[in-house]
Simulated assay, not measured.
Amino acid sequence: MRSKGFMAVLALGMATLLAGCSGSGPVKRVSEPQVGIQQLTVKADGSWSVDLRIDNFSSVPMQFDNVSLAVTVAGESAGTLAGNPALGIGPESADIATLTLAPSSAARIAVADALAGRKSLDYRLEGTIAATPDGSGVRNFQLERSNTLNPVPGLPGVMR
């Protein structure tokens, strides 16, 4: 038979353990988002429609409000892709923001050459994206991303 003192200590220990668990919930983690070009479409006027894929790797929803990214294609500066997508993206999810860019002449030629030759095109994004985590203030994230786009068969002027 156990003593009353031991049972009291055990009961107090269990109560403390349960009290410690009651206030905690899922861990709220804010991670750096990732941005990449999902699709680049050359418009009739020579400007580009750029579909940016924004990945929210955080465990909380985030509101993405301001994007400013220097774009380089095939080693040529294309200009700055800037806008206010005003996208709310859920935890560990992604969405697309479509922005327009009037590229430099050298960048236009590089994309036209890749499309005509049906060859891949290296690109680089460098800049910032402003996001507001759920229940928090605005945070600016520095981004750098390099990847490749390829012409889409059957869709003239489109690279993915």
Rank of each mutant, 00 (worst) to 15 (best):
A114P: 03
D134R: 08
A130R: 15
G117R: 13
K119V: 12
L121S: 02
V111W: 01
D113Y: 05
L115D: 09
R108V: 03
V111L: 02
I109E: 09
V111F: 05
I109A: 14
L125N: 01
R124Q: 13
A130E: 15
L125Q: 07
S120K: 07
S136E: 14
G137C: 04
A107V: 06
D113I: 12
Y123K: 02
A107K: 08
K119T: 14
R118M: 13
I109S: 09
D134P: 08
A112M: 10
K119Q: 13
T128D: 09
D122I: 04
P133M: 03
A110P: 09
A116M: 11
K119N: 05
D113N: 12
D134G: 06
A114W: 00
S136C: 03
A112P: 09
G127E: 10
R118G: 12
T128V: 15
T132F: 03
R124C: 06
A131V: 01
A114G: 04
D113V: 14
A116S: 15
R124H: 10
K119R: 15
D122Y: 01
I129K: 08
Y123N: 07
Y123P: 01
T128Y: 09
L121E: 00
L115I: 12
Y123I: 05
L115V: 13
D122A: 13
A107P: 06
T128L: 11
E126I: 03
D113E: 11
D113F: 03
A107T: 10
G117C: 07
D122V: 05
T128A: 05
T128C: 07
A112Y: 02
L115R: 03
K119M: 11
D113S: 13
G135N: 04
I129S: 10
D122K: 11
R118V: 13
A131L: 02
A112S: 15
R124Y: 01
I109H: 04
I109Q: 12
A114H: 01
G135E: 06
L115Y: 03
S120V: 07
A116G: 12
A112G: 09
L121V: 06
L115G: 03
E126C: 00
L121T: 07
T128M: 07
E126Y: 07
I129C: 11
S136W: 00
D134T: 10
A107W: 01
R108T: 10
A116Q: 13
A110K: 03
L121M: 11
I109K: 12
Y123F: 06
T128G: 03
